[in-house]
Design a protein around this nucleic acid. Sequence first.
DNA 1: AGCAACAACCCAAACGTTTGGGACAAACGT
DNA 2: ACGTTTGTCCCAAACGTTTGGGTTGTTGCT
Lengths: 329, 329
Amino acid sequence: MLAEELGLHVSTVSRVLHAKPDESHRAASKATVERVRRLADELGYRPNPHATSLRTQRSNLVGVLVPRLSDIVLATIYEGIEESAGEHGLSTFVTNTRDVPEVQRARTDMVLARRVDGIIFGDAYADAEFLREVAARGVPFVLVSRHAGDYPSVTCDDYLGGRMVGEHLLGLGHRDVAVVAGEPYASTGIDRTAGFADAYAEAGIEIPGHRILHSRFDARGGHETTARILADGEPPSAIFAVNDFAAIGAFGAVRDYGLRVGADIAVAGFNDTPLAAELPVPLTTVRSPMHEMGRRGIDLLARLLQGEQVRSERLRPELVVRASTDPRA
Amino acid sequence: MLAEELGLHVSTVSRVLHAKPDESHRAASKATVERVRRLADELGYRPNPHATSLRTQRSNLVGVLVPRLSDIVLATIYEGIEESAGEHGLSTFVTNTRDVPEVQRARTDMVLARRVDGIIFGDAYADAEFLREVAARGVPFVLVSRHAGDYPSVTCDDYLGGRMVGEHLLGLGHRDVAVVAGEPYASTGIDRTAGFADAYAEAGIEIPGHRILHSRFDARGGHETTARILADGEPPSAIFAVNDFAAIGAFGAVRDYGLRVGADIAVAGFNDTPLAAELPVPLTTVRSPMHEMGRRGIDLLARLLQGEQVRSERLRPELVVRASTDPRA
DNA sequence: AGCAACAACCCAAACGTTTGGGACAAACGT
DNA sequence: ACGTTTGTCCCAAACGTTTGGGTTGTTGCT
């Protein structure tokens, strides 16, 4: 600590710098406080966080694990996390796990080795197996985007979102529909699919198993899976892809099959990413509060780190109808 | 260091754990080395990085500043960075600056306060003003994606890429063209535009000023700017948007204007993001090695941190022709 | 036998904080 | 006049490493 160029003891300076404005007088005389403060920001003094962490056993660091940042959904969630983290005095550490269990493990070990105070998982597997291990190690964590077990999480109400899409398509008269369902281990895809299927079931229509196919979450995955659907007998009249990127991939497959999105076959997505509205055929989708999920996720973790008891949050989605399901829109 | 449950002095253990395999015998006896190693990974021992950093004055941390991670281009570059950082024993710290100078400053201070060893800027302003300040403070840094001044950088050869698009459109007979040029402070947009314009100039065609408009880099920005172009008299026969997202926005604007991309008006983008190929009208674009840029960026920084002299790198782009400029493709 | 060389360790300082506990003087109460 | 309080500050330990420099005891050489 260079700030004892003023002939003061480090401890005094430390106290001055840490005192809340209303109790600074307890640390030192008014004059001294002033002197310290002035010099501190004259020199642009910043306490060495390594020293602080070492002493306090708290790093104010949180690790954030996501499948991939190049997925705009997770990237946006992370923006929310980062934004709000600052307000809590926390810094974040993101890392990509590609949804690969070994990588998740390795990255978790990595952030733990960096002595983070807690972790935000954006890549939870629905079986929660790995999370149980983490919990057993006593590491505080929260989930965002996906939920698992009953670990604290902030998610979109995906079931409701799926249901909205189902009701929308039902209302348009679509009876033969297919689902590009995403990865089987992600609660997002699972719930969206379930909500969608339940809406149909309640209308007396069971969606047959061969109409519900798992897929990767990216455009390529959506393309391949949709191609398989289209290759399988009579094409459905509508396709629900559980996220926008998969839906865009579906666009590609539909196009390759010689059909027109909107006119010949309805396609709906999920998330309302900024692209959805710009596509040549604008995409019907469900707006999920991605940014907000991130913010609330870190808020939740912050409270957890304070020792508070926390409850999961489920945010409300909103259906956005565009021309990909309704050419008149 | 808990590892002296074996009755050894910490320093001995430290030496054992740091010795390269071929010189471990200099640290302790074979038996001791073995004992230490075994206990260490039995306990899952990881040195406390804060203590290490404090002692060595090196954090093995690098700060990464990007405009926004929700831009898939930067997110992909960051994936490359993270991937390669691990191989250098470095950890990274990303943060969004939204291309706002005050935020860039604040985030730079933030990462510096965290005692990073160096910085990677993905958000350099072409005027390099801020970078000069950073350099003056003696902070090692490299640039990725954009270049500025002659600070070490890893970029795509954007000028060449722009030129490729220009020659391509010229070859198709387009003489009245417009450019959605991106932000005026980003070398990417500047160079791509310059390359494009030069290609036309060499063919004896000066692109008039009102045909080159700055824009934000996202879909919305591309949409707005394209709409202004279309509203301004006779529409051009082709539009070059300096990145894919802006191009997708251009798609939206063209659609709203009642024209068809590919058939009525050609549109080209830049970056070849995974979406480009999936669009209902597949997008002609220039493939830029985003992942590779990230990898090389951190490699460059790593070498800089070793004290080596480094040279900027300029990676080769590749034109990918699709139906948005050539319906026969 | 005497001395150097080496193997196998240990010592202690230092990195920059935070924090419980003083120390010292001035002001106060009676 | 003397104990007590209060205001202002200092002391020192501790956090977990790394690293230059010991200290032993054994082996090798002559």
